[in-house]
Each structure stands twice: as C-alpha cells, then as structure tokens.
C-alpha cells in the first residue's frame, strides 16, 4: 500500500513526547524564521538546526526525503525561474537564456527555504500522532472568539480532519468517472460542452451521496458538533517550556545576525 507523504512514525523520542501545541508553535516560529533569514549563513544555520532536531526524533532520514521528493519538480522550477528571470550581473549567456548572479542567489535562497519548510513540517507530522495535531489546533483555537463566525473550535477541528481524509476519495472518484466516460468515447479536449458535464455531474452527485452517508455515520456515533473530549491528554510539561524557551532564544539570535 502507498505510504502517504506526511505520515506519522510512532516512537517515544524526545520530539514524540512533546506536546503537539509546542510542536505547532515551533513549526510556525521556524517558518517565520525561514522567511526572515536572508543570509546564506543563516539558512545554513537553520539546516544545522534541523539536523540537530532530527537527532532528537530517532526517525530515519527517508521520512524527510519522502516529504521533499514530490515537491522537487516545483522547487527546481522555482530555482530556474529565479535564475533566468532575475536581472543582474549576467554570468554566462547561451541561446536566449542569461542566468544572473543575483538570480542564482535568489534561486538558491528560495528553494532552500521551501525545502526547509517541508522538512520542518515533515519533522512535526512524523513525530506527532495526526489526531494529536488536530487536538492541539483545537486547543489553540479554543480561546479565540470563533463563536461570532458561527463555528466552534470542535467543529473546525473535525472539519479539518474530514477534508483531509476526503481528498483521496474525491481523487478516486475523478479517476473512476474519467475511465468510465473515456470508455464511452469521450475526449476531454474535443468537446468541453459535452465532456465537462459528463465528468462534473456524476462527480457532484457522488460527492453529495458520500457526504450524506458520512453525515449519517457521524451522527450514528454520537457526533453533535458540540463539546467533545479527546483521547489525547494535552499537558504542557517542563520539557515543553524548556524546548520553547530554547527555540525562542535561537530565533532571537538568528534575527539579530
């Protein structure tokens, strides 16, 4: 079976035992840091920091490579777009392309940032039970006055969960319908007036049916969209505070230089 890109690897390392809220805050902080860091020295420091963190996770490197690989094409594209379309000192010219020094720097910087973001996110998702992440987000949102918007943090968390788990079903539906209509001689390029409804109508009807079935299953298991508990007990422990403190210290240092 196919392993998902961002997947949880159970364990009991230091990172695994941190509170999901700590890790969420850390990822946000590191994300901001990544995009505020201009110098290559700073970016290098962040990579070093990442590798230091992985040693606290007890996770194999392939977990992180898995997160970066599907985005590689996009990252390479960004790199070359920057390289060729940034104006500046032209390094060398061939054909109509004029890669510039600034372009090279921008390209490296931007692709390194994306890779860093993916790596930090992968580190969190690999060391945190997905349901604990949702639970953590729910807790962080709870003090916000969401009631004004007509939702509560419990609903928001459940909605988030559902939309993530529903995507694969949707893709499968698209594939199934595409195959079925192609077998009836439909060509997508040729006649969009005919082919768009042939795809969209079964898809929409199917999704509505799925949603109805899902709603019944949820209601049957006691879901009311109100207060619920979680199988995870979230308590900030001393290690969480120490970790956050260390991180803030690191961030302050980084921003200073």
């Amino acid at each position: 079976m196919q392993e998902p890109v961002f997947s949880y690897v159970p364990g009991d390392s230091f990172l695994h035992t941190l509170d999901p809220r700590t890790k969420l805050a850390a990822v946000m902080l590191l994300g901001i840091l990544t995009f505020r860091t201009e110098s290559f020295f700073g970016i290098g420091a962040l990579f070093v920091f990442f590798f230091a963190l992985t040693s606290f996770s007890g996770l194999p490197a392939r977990v992180f490579l898995r997160a970066v690989r599907p985005m590689m094409l996009f990252i390479i594209f960004i790199f070359f777009a920057q390289l060729f379309f940034t104006k500046g000192h032209v390094l060398t010219s061939f054909w109509i392309l004029h890669p510039s020094l600034e372009g090279l720097q921008n390209g490296l910087r931007l692709s390194a940032r994306f890779i860093l973001l993916l790596l930090f996110a992968a580190l969190m998702t690999a060391s945190t039970d997905p349901s604990a992440i949702t639970c953590g987000i729910e807790r962080m949102l709870r003090p916000l006055p969401l009631r004004w918007m007509g939702v509560n943090s419990f609903e928001l968390a459940t909605m988030m969960n559902l939309s993530i788990s529903f995507l694969p079903i949707l893709f499968e539906r698209v594939e199934r319908t595409k195959a079925a209509q192609a077998s009836r001689g439909m060509y997508f390029g040729k006649n969009p007036l005919r082919s768009v409804p042939a795809l969209a109508i079964p898809l929409i009807k199917g999704v509505i049916r799925d949603a109805e079935e899902l709603a019944l299953a949820m209601e049957s298991r006691g879901y009311q969209g109100t207060r619920r508990t979680s199988m995870h007990e979230l308590t900030m422990q001393r290690r969480d505070w120490i970790f956050l403190f260390a991180l803030i210290l690191f961030a302050a240092l980084m921003l200073r230089f």
């Binding site: 199934r176 319908t177 195959a179 079925a180 209509q181 409804p197 079964p202 009807k205 199917g206 049916r209």
Partner: peptide, 14 residues
C-alpha cells in the same frame, strides 16, 4: 469494439 461497464453505474450517468 470494446465496451466497458464499471462497478458503480452512478459514476458515469449524467
């Protein structure tokens, strides 16, 4: 020449 019928008829009717 090859006619196909998939499992869920509802996936193709529109």
């Amino acid at each position: 020449r090859v006619g196909m019928v998939f499992q869920q008829a509802a996936d193709q009717l529109f």
